[in-house]
Design a protein around this nucleic acid. Sequence first.
DNA 1: GACCAGGGTAACT
DNA 2: AGTTACCATGGT
Length: 291
Amino acid sequence: MYILQKNDSVIIKDLDHFNLKQTLECGQCFRFYTIEVNKFLIIAYNKVLVIEQKKQDIIFYNTTIDEFNTIWYKYFDFDNNYGLIKDRLQKTDKTLSKAIESTSGIRILKQDIFETLISFIISQNKNIKHIKKVIENMSMTFGEPIKEINGITYYSFPTIEQLKNANEADLRACKTGFRAPYILDAVDKIANGILDLKELQNKPTSYVKDQLTTIKGVGDKIADCVLLFAYSRYEVFPTDVWILRIIETLYLNEKANKKHVQQFAKQQFGDLAGYAQQYLFYYGRENKIGK
DNA sequence: GACCAGGGTAACT
DNA sequence: AGTTACCATGGT
């Protein structure tokens, strides 16, 4: 792979192990819109990015090398060697090997910690489409306009400071429902210094998980999503209703509970369990496994 | 109209 | 420690 700049775009040529559509649609992120086939608009880190994939080339529109280096390089996890990761996973497991054949372009994004936390609090007992809508509502209500494209204004995800001004009625107006007090508790703990999301970056995974689950409405699964998608802890295995059914169907051939599935994933996939989870999740949903 | 959605909590056995 | 009803809301 190599990078070049052309007018106001940055282009990555000959990039392996990357599929933009798979990476965005595997359920790890919620702030993106489809413009055309393989062309998307993403909102992240207070930026609006139009990005397109043409075979093995990725075009980042209206950006600079500097912005690419400081934001998008890390966001798309270009530091990690996916060839190596997939080799290791495919060698140890035939079922996963088959799943990876059709999902091999997924990358685990490195997302903003606060946004990921609030987004997955919202996610509980909702489908992905509705999660996206509620996050959009919150951004329009509490965030700031970043950029206007084709007459549509795109808003940043609200900061902690901006959400401090929110009350429960405001949040319910965004259709958060019973999750409104959960969001308020998260904002309260962070704003008052009881939780320091940045400091947790340097702590062991189990400690971070213990801290995150002190927030009301944050349990095992939501904490694992924040650990995987924002703290880059690739050993966790977020276990939701989908992945539960997928593991039951593809591996266990019997009913299981979430604790059982977590133990299984740890011994089966080890320190790469998080990657395995994303490949299996996308594969399972595409093929309606267990439904 | 019941059932489900990238779940968690409280109140039960 | 392992179940179960309930929590808003929109879609099928």
